[in-house]
Computed example of a mutant assay.
Amino acid sequence: MRVPDQAVRGRRCAVLVALAAVLAVTVAPGAAVGAPTAMAPTGAVPVCQVRDGRLNEISGLVATDAGFVVVNDGADDESHRRIFFLDRRCAVVRTLPFPSRPRDTEDLAVGADGTIWVGDIGDNGRARETIAVWKLAPRASRPVLYRMTYPDGPHDAEALLVTRDGLPVIVTKQSGGAGLYTPVGPLRRDATVPLVEVGRVRLPGTTTSNPFSFLGRRLVTGAATAPDGSRVVLRTYADAFEFDVSGGAVIAALTRGTPRVTALPDEPQGEAVSYSRDGRSLLTVSESAGQPPGTRPTVLRYALTPVPSPTPRRDTPAPTVTRRDAPAPTATRAADAADRAGPRDTTRAVVVGGLGLLALALVAAVRTRRGRR
């Protein structure tokens, strides 16, 4: 397939992404107009800025003792198609190329043994016959490719989890419930291993402001596992949803658990998420492609919602609530507000949703330019 002229493609990308941003934020109530060059949304604490020009489409992030590991999503420029190792100030200290061209690297994960997993799972056009993960073992000089295939046709996905037993979990990017897929058997270098759908996760609704309106609150764009394996988090363009994991049962946690929500408001295009090394906070970073000139990706830190205290023992008297007008949980209040919305609010939601969908489609069109493996 002929590759368009780089300058022309760059202008097309800028125009499409800018149009998507305008459509998404112009009519969305409460949405911020324009993108802050500092990339520091409300509630976020900046950690460091990534100044390397190759890292303008960061889609995967993991924190390490020495700093961070990041990857771009599928890129045309060979210099961008690498695993980047950053120090604690976000300066690139080394890079590692892939042995062959990846299709669309979207997320990173770290196994219990320190292996870095790269999720080559993006498929905006839903046309890939196979997806893949790359595994970089500790002290290895190159990652190893393992291919997989869905049982029910292509899916776009941007989130990867790895259980403590080394089982990859692919979380698809779709509204109305993200699919959870795992391999039917051990991964093999010389074979394509089938996947099986093991469940679906439905995230609670929020009202967090983001460039893609309510659709941005529904699509899973990244995932991470806490250092001790006791929690996992899924993120959208707007929020992070943290689930408690008991006995390593990640699928059960995602399909049956009730998450704690941390708002990630108005990140320009937030896809990457990681736990800090101490597990006490979340780290995120957005893509900077299509943002105003001079905008740099910034690693942000968010304080986690505290874990609820254990249920009191039966022999310990529980506190008695005597007020009948005790406030409802935040999610319930949000749902009640939605139920009270009038026709004008409903119409506005439909318009915003349609424009948000167009915005996402335009962004996907910009990023869909990969060849078949």
Rank of each mutant, 00 (worst) to 15 (best):
66 A>C: 09
75 A>H: 06
58 I>Y: 03
82 R>Q: 05
93 V>E: 13
57 E>F: 12
75 A>M: 11
68 F>Q: 04
89 R>P: 15
71 V>D: 00
60 G>S: 14
59 S>Q: 09
85 F>W: 10
49 Q>P: 15
74 G>Y: 09
64 T>N: 03
64 T>Y: 01
83 I>G: 00
85 F>S: 06
77 D>Y: 06
82 R>K: 08
49 Q>F: 14
77 D>L: 05
53 G>T: 15
85 F>N: 04
93 V>R: 09
82 R>F: 00
68 F>E: 04
60 G>N: 13
91 A>S: 14
67 G>M: 11
57 E>H: 09
86 L>S: 02
87 D>Y: 06
95 T>H: 01
84 F>V: 00
92 V>L: 09
79 S>Y: 03
72 N>E: 08
50 V>P: 00
89 R>A: 14
70 V>F: 00
50 V>C: 05
80 H>C: 11
97 P>G: 07
67 G>T: 04
66 A>I: 13
81 R>G: 04
84 F>H: 02
83 I>N: 00
80 H>M: 13
63 A>L: 06
52 D>H: 08
78 E>I: 09
66 A>P: 01
90 C>A: 11
59 S>H: 11
94 R>T: 15
51 R>V: 14
76 D>V: 07
78 E>H: 10
52 D>M: 03
73 D>S: 12
73 D>G: 10
63 A>T: 04
64 T>C: 05
95 T>K: 03
56 N>M: 14
82 R>G: 01
63 A>K: 02
56 N>W: 12
82 R>H: 04
73 D>H: 12
77 D>R: 09
76 D>W: 14
58 I>N: 03
91 A>T: 14
96 L>M: 12
58 I>K: 01
77 D>N: 10
60 G>A: 15
54 R>N: 08
68 F>I: 11
89 R>T: 15
68 F>V: 09
77 D>T: 08
89 R>V: 15
57 E>N: 09
74 G>L: 08
74 G>Q: 07
66 A>W: 10
75 A>L: 05
92 V>M: 06
72 N>M: 07
72 N>R: 07
83 I>A: 02
58 I>S: 02
96 L>R: 05
95 T>Q: 05
72 N>W: 06
58 I>H: 03
92 V>C: 09
79 S>D: 11
61 L>M: 13
67 G>Q: 10
49 Q>V: 14
64 T>R: 01
53 G>S: 13
94 R>V: 13
63 A>F: 10
49 Q>G: 15
63 A>Q: 08
70 V>Y: 00
78 E>F: 09
59 S>N: 11
90 C>E: 09
67 G>S: 10
71 V>E: 00
52 D>Y: 06
51 R>L: 11
70 V>M: 01
94 R>A: 06
67 G>W: 10
93 V>P: 02
63 A>M: 09
94 R>S: 13
68 F>Y: 12
55 L>K: 02
81 R>I: 01
75 A>P: 02
88 R>A: 15
73 D>Q: 13
81 R>L: 07
96 L>S: 04
62 V>K: 12
62 V>R: 12
72 N>I: 02
70 V>S: 00
78 E>D: 12
62 V>C: 04
73 D>R: 11
93 V>Y: 05
93 V>L: 10
95 T>D: 04
57 E>Q: 12
68 F>C: 05
50 V>F: 08
52 D>T: 10
72 N>L: 06
74 G>R: 06
54 R>L: 11
97 P>M: 08
51 R>D: 12
65 D>A: 14
50 V>G: 03
81 R>H: 11
96 L>H: 02
